[in-house]
Design a binder for these strands. Structure first.
Lengths: 164, 164
DNA sequence: AATGAAAATGAAAATCATTTTCATTTAGGG
DNA sequence: CCCTAAATGAAAATGATTTTCATTTTCATT
């Protein structure tokens, strides 16, 4: 899926990588699961991305690093990552399950173009504030949120000569 | 899917029903499609709901009115309704495609409990304002948005004795 | 009202993402 | 080093969604 961003992307530092691994392995220990090379590779691959990855897309990336890792393992690991908060599902209109990693990532939101399906990230502290306020108002223990704006991106508007 | 609301639900008035049908049939005409009883029944059934319906759930409702209407037709009609803006997909964590109708419906948002999957609607004019502002800021022709807050609802919190 | 071309319908089949099964291998505490 | 519980991954199962296709219906035009 085409994606653009309004900020730049640096690969995760060695320290933040280690920190994320720490979270992951503490979670594994807590629920009585084991540390494996496959899980390690999958986590590292995932952290290096910034996209909204489907299981299959992550699988393809993982395969480049270790061709012996199977789809099923990626699928299961992604679920584990979501369990411990390192990954979270992002609902996109294409209906496929997509995940993005949540580690050292400023809370961000998406604008999705309904013409070309491209998604652009943006940041809005106001939205974060709203989450908090609304949770309080309705006695809901809010932990995260999801905000997407749908519409026509600038490129598509230009292409189809449809001014705002 | 369990759903609660913070406002009351009245069935659509005869006029708004007609208005929606008008939108639908104008759209059909525009793209060279035909008016059929099935499409009529499906649209009417859909407008009478206020839920986040999967295709199958709508199909079951439609079947009560006309048992001869097939799943495929409901599926295809729902797509048509989405095309002309009368329906829109709501991404829920269960992964199934869910639609809600957009006709004469105040713009609303959802709080989804990650414990029991219940969803509660809420209204926030601020979110609508944000959509507009952000669209302007990033030169994005925003037409609609999607805002969901995930967390633990009051009931689940009480049940598990986990105070805020 | 009759005609005919284009579209709609719906049952069944196909597709495709996701999940489970199961035989085998591996991790890691004792 | 051993042993047991867990992990792996290939293949099969599942389940939602989409397509196919033979038949029926719509509707613009006679």
């Amino acid at each position: 899926m085409l994606q653009r961003r309004i900020d730049d992307h640096a690969p995760p530092s060695r320290e933040s990588m280690r920190e994320a691994q720490d979270i992951f392995y503490k979670h594994l220990k807590r629920v009585g699961l084991k540390h494996t090379d496959q899980r390690d590779t999958i986590l590292r691959t995932f952290l290096e991305t910034r996209d909204h990855l489907s299981t299959d897309e992550l699988f393809r990336l993982v395969r480049k690093k270790d061709a012996k890792i199977g789809f099923t393992t990626v699928y299961r690991t992604l679920k584990l990552l979501a369990e411990c908060g390192l990954a979270s599902a992002v609902p996109f209109p294409d209906g496929m399950a997509r995940y993005e990693h949540q580690f050292n990532r400023r809370n961000h939101h998406h604008m999705v173009c309904t013409e070309c399906d491209a998604s652009v990230e943006f940041f809005s502290p106001e939205v974060n504030k709203l989450e908090e306020e609304i949770g309080r108002k309705y006695h809901f223990d809010a932990t995260r949120h999801n905000f997407q704006i749908y519409g026509i991106c600038e490129d598509c508007r230009k292409r189809t000569r449809r001014p705002i």
